[in-house]
Design a protein around this nucleic acid. Sequence first.
DNA 1: GAATTTAGTTTACATTGTTAACCTTTATTT
DNA 2: AAATAAAGGTTAACAATGTAAACTAAATTC
Lengths: 146, 146
Amino acid sequence: MEIKNQQPFGRLLALIGKNYLHALQLKLRDLDAERNFYALILIDEGKGKITQQELAELLESDKVSVVRIIDNLSDLGYVKREKVETDRRKYSLVLTAKAEKELPEIKTAITEVTELAFRGLSVTKIEELYADLHIIKNNLNNRNYE
Amino acid sequence: MEIKNQQPFGRLLALIGKNYLHALQLKLRDLDAERNFYALILIDEGKGKITQQELAELLESDKVSVVRIIDNLSDLGYVKREKVETDRRKYSLVLTAKAEKELPEIKTAITEVTELAFRGLSVTKIEELYADLHIIKNNLNNRNYE
DNA sequence: GAATTTAGTTTACATTGTTAACCTTTATTT
DNA sequence: AAATAAAGGTTAACAATGTAAACTAAATTC
């Protein structure tokens, strides 16, 4: 396979990532939440203790974006901000009952879209793929070229 | 490797794609063009005959986005729109001398970032990776779930 | 206790994605 | 040939996203 005359590798990845998200949004179109599904999962895993700053790190995003994500999820009734008593600059992010009710459907949808994406690939190949992608992700980390 | 407790696959790809583009933009920061590098390459390959509609298909984008891309490249002096005489609805997209002069640097930068991304992976692995990604891209094509 | 740092918010601006309405030119229908 | 539809491109509007700067309030450092 010639590498020349192909679209840049990063462009290919970004395109696939976008299509993945579209498939997920379609599967979950009956929910109020239209995006930020992974944030909900991370907040759930935070067991009521995660802060916006910590969430920003997990999402590899910045705190301004996280404010908007939480505003969005909060407006839709998925998340509540709770002042941390021991450090009153921080908020703990807590899922509402609504979010907890819908979370299984979200996780299932993610699994299904991932399975759709991987159709025709063996488990071995998928594991290799993840390993390679993590190598590539590290290679492209800012500290490697800035 | 556990697939659970990882970030959604599409999110990983989108992140890597974004980092790839950042690396490329950094490498090419001395150029006037700050993006749309791949569009320039496609226009070059179109040998002065490609139209906006055709470019939209190659970019897997829509015609509105392409208008903006060509506006941008045209404002920066990289591309000219030339009316097609045989079908006066269309424009041929033509690179300027400036674009042709900078194109080698752009292609080199893309190659370098791609090589940086693939550091530590064998040629065999890279070829497998491309093959797998194209399978995944097809799997996630709209027609497979809409 | 003054200065700095941290968590979060707000504002601003540019880019991107999406949709709809529109103009002009070409193709199709009848 | 006239009417209609379709195609190529443009414009406008709106929401989402990325990035940066300035800000408040609380905590930490010196």
